[in-house]
Amino acid sequence: MGKFDNHGLKAISPLGGHEPRADTFTGLLIREVTDRALASLAARQGQAEAVKSTAASYLGGSLPEPASWNANGVFAAWWMGPDLWMVSAPHDSHELMAADLKQAVGDAGSVVEQTDGWCRFDMEGPRCFDVLERLCNANVRSGKAGDATRTSMEHLGVFLLCQTPGQGYSIVGPRSSAASLHHALVAAAKSVI
């Protein structure tokens, strides 16, 4: 695996496998995504502007506005709450991103390693709307690319990131409940398709 992964411990995916899981339906693919490193970035008291500018130079683009996400090169970020963002990058090359990000923002921000706090499933294909409306109350049919919504699916708090309306979404949920979240997604897909 990655350059930081050459120690004696072998990683498993949130679903417990050594390879990410994929489930295919007519017009829909649900796949486990395990290759992203995550770190949360919070602005210190009164430092929102400073953290935005220092983070922008590290990320190569600005931090996203409320309820949205964006991508800049290898980085992506989404808004989690007031003055709080989640930053992601490829795990293989950025397993230690939290430390780098902290160095970049200095005392303007608080950074927390979040890579393994989450599991992520990407949903792709034309049946996304039909399946998502069985799962969460987000108004996906009126949504646009770049929307980041914190919502709940089968009693699990998740982030729903819209890549392409109706065609591509990322669902980021708590890692310990990956099996429950995966079951919910697959059951909804079976119910619809």
Binding site: A43, R44, Q45, L84, E113, Q114, D116, G117, R175
Partner: peptide, 15 residues
């Protein structure tokens, strides 16, 4: 509200 403190859960991130 003016304390400089940031909170986030990391329960799941560490085994």
């Amino acid at each position: 509200p003016d304390m400089d403190v940031q909170l986030i859960s990391t329960t799941e991130a560490w085994a």
